[in-house]
């Protein structure tokens, strides 16, 4: 059986990209030193996983979600609570950090799916804020803003010590590659096309027999699950965190990552995650101007290149190449 002809060019490109990504992870991982670089990459990959989820729900389902950061936090707290309070195995805890946000996402997505874009954005914003308030207030489980979660056990699934920076790099790298494969697969199949159709026009999509509400709910749940996975990995990576990490600014950062990258490409989302994570490290004076500059950047991209910065750059590069030929 042959792979479909139409998808083959983009699917093949995506598969090559996956190989390149895996190779990159492998190379960095094999570096003997460079702990600072690896730490940067670990967080880029963690945020990248959450950003890929957001890319799916926004770029493909057409649903603006401003609670992705809160789902991330939900995953982090689930993981931390299970490990610290109930001594659950770390791998199971990580699984729960995917499952619980996915379940919550699934529950809220059905009623949310009926809303038009700006009402949906408001609703997810409200939901995200409510969750961040809960994170700060339910101190018995989360520790609140102070002290938060302290000294979570080092990642050791089934007793294997994988908590060092080098090991976490492998763990996060593997997770990222797997997530990328799943995302790319989804995009190149009928459900991916159906989601793009839904984003473009729900009524014509429905009139072709596409169950629009079901797919919107499914993709929202999947995105929440991916955010939760990021959160779980974050918990093991930082081992100490508090509720201020998951406030609304984080959800907006995730959205910025997707917009800087590409609204419809998980690769763009990953690139955006890398940029947003790494950039502040280079621009030390950026701190007070970070919010302003990201806001200007995001607005500029939305006004002039609503498909995302990276995809506009890519399209521009292709035009240049064509002109040169």
């Amino acid at each position: 059986m042959s792979a479909p002809a139409s998808g083959v060019s983009s699917y093949r490109r995506d598969m090559i990209g996956i190989v390149v990504l895996a190779a990159f992870v492998f190379c960095i991982g094999s570096l003997a030193s460079g702990s600072y670089l690896k730490t940067m990459l670990i967080f880029s990959m963690i945020y990248g996983i959450a950003a890929i989820g957001l890319c799916l729900v926004f770029g493909y389902g057409g649903q603006i979600s401003l609670c992705q950061g809160a789902m991330f936090g939900l995953g982090a707290y689930t993981c931390a609570a299970l490990v610290q309070r109930w001594r659950v195995d770390h791998l199971l805890a990580l699984g729960a950090s995917i499952a619980l946000p996915a379940l919550v996402g699934w529950l809220v997505a059905r009623p949310l799916g009926r809303l038009s874009s700006h009402y949906l954005a408001m609703a997810t914003l409200a939901l995200g804020l409510i969750l961040s308030i809960l994170f700060a207030q339910v101190r018995t489980i989360t520790g609140g803003a102070d002290p938060g979660v302290i000294d979570l056990a080092s990642f050791a699934p089934f007793g294997m010590p994988l908590g060092t920076t080098s090991s976490m790099h492998w763990v996060c790298g593997v997770c990222l590659v797997v997530v990328m494969v799943l995302a790319v697969n989804l995009i190149n199949t009928r459900i991916g096309r159906a989601l793009r159709a839904i984003r473009s026009g729900e009524v014509p999509a429905a009139c072709l027999g596409i169950d629009t509400s079901k797919y919107k709910v499914d993709v929202f749940a999947a995105a929440s699950g991916l955010a939760g996975l990021g959160g779980g990995l974050y918990a093991f990576a930082t081992r100490t965190f508090n509720s201020s990490a998951f406030e609304i600014g984080f959800s907006i950062d995730l959205l910025t990552m997707v917009l800087i990258g590409s609204v419809r490409s998980p690769w763009g989302a990953m690139a955006g995650a890398l940029v947003i994570t790494v950039l502040p490290a280079f621009l030390e004076h950026l701190d007070r101007f970070r919010l302003l500059s990201f806001g200007l950047l995001m607005t500029g991209v939305m006004v002039f290149m609503p498909d995302g910065l990276t995809s506009a750059a890519y399209a521009g590069a292709r035009r240049l190449v064509k002109r040169a030929q």
Partner: peptide, 10 residues
């Protein structure tokens, strides 16, 4: 919608 959200950030 996205634009007004990002304007808020500005």
């Amino acid at each position: 919608v996205m634009i007004t959200i990002s304007a808020a950030s500005i």
